[in-house]
Structure formats: C-alpha cells, structure tokens
Amino acid sequence: MNSFEEINIGDTLGPLELFVSKDQCRAYARTMGMGEGAGRFTDDEAARKEGLPGMIIPGNMSLGLLSKLVTDWIGSSNAWLTRMSTTYRVPVQPDHTVTIHGFITNKNPEDRTAEIDVWMENEESERLVTGTATVEFRK
C-alpha cells in the first residue's frame, strides 16, 4: 500500500472475485460456534423453512470478507482499520461468485484517516452487503 500522502480520493481497492462454497460457509459457522438455531447457515432445508431462498452466509462472515479487502490493502504497513460499518441488504447465498469492491471516498489530513466504501455484489450486479471503512495511517 502507498502512504497516506500517496493515496487519492477515487482510488480503488479490488475488485476481488470470490466463490464462497457451502462448505466454507458451514466451516465458518462451525468455527464460530454457531451451532443450534443457526440452521440457516448450514442447511438449505432449514433455511427454506425460514422463508430464505436456501443457505445464507452469516452477516459476520460478510463483514469479515469486506474487512479483508481493506486489511489486504493495508498489508503489513503501519495503518489500522479503525471502523467498519455494514448493512446486510440482501441475503448472500453460498455457491455463488461474489465481487467485492472498494473506493477511497474521503481523506482527512488532520487525523490521517481515509474513508472507504466497500460492498459485495452478486453476478447480477446487485449489491448484497454495503459498508464504510475507516483506516488510520500511523506515523
């Protein structure tokens, strides 16, 4: 990543294309101890009983993937993701390809922070999860 001085409003992060399989989704749910009552993240049938189109990816997993776009961009440099806000607009289904986009939309020289729009969209270009990230560049 470049330094705070070198980044510009309008710069892009990604896009990153990801295929999230049902098994990856189940692995995340299990790792996080989402056992009972979390059938919607592990089982198509249980998800349909709740009126969903099938298994969905946990919101926290989407938040993790959006955050990863930002932390990958930071790499090992001395910057810190200080804030991430997400809105889950449309359920994200596994076994689909999603694309994660990021745009730098604002820079604040006083506290050396940058604001970044992030979102995840499906094959139809529908935005499923949207978010805003703040990164602080430390000296």
Partner: peptide, 11 residues
C-alpha cells in the same frame, strides 16, 4: 424471527 441487519464496529 431475528436477523442480523448490520454492524458498526470501532476497532
């Protein structure tokens, strides 16, 4: 039914 609608996290 309850769903996770979003988060705002300050790290």
């Amino acid at each position: 039914r309850g769903f996770d609608a979003g988060k705002d996290v300050e790290f």
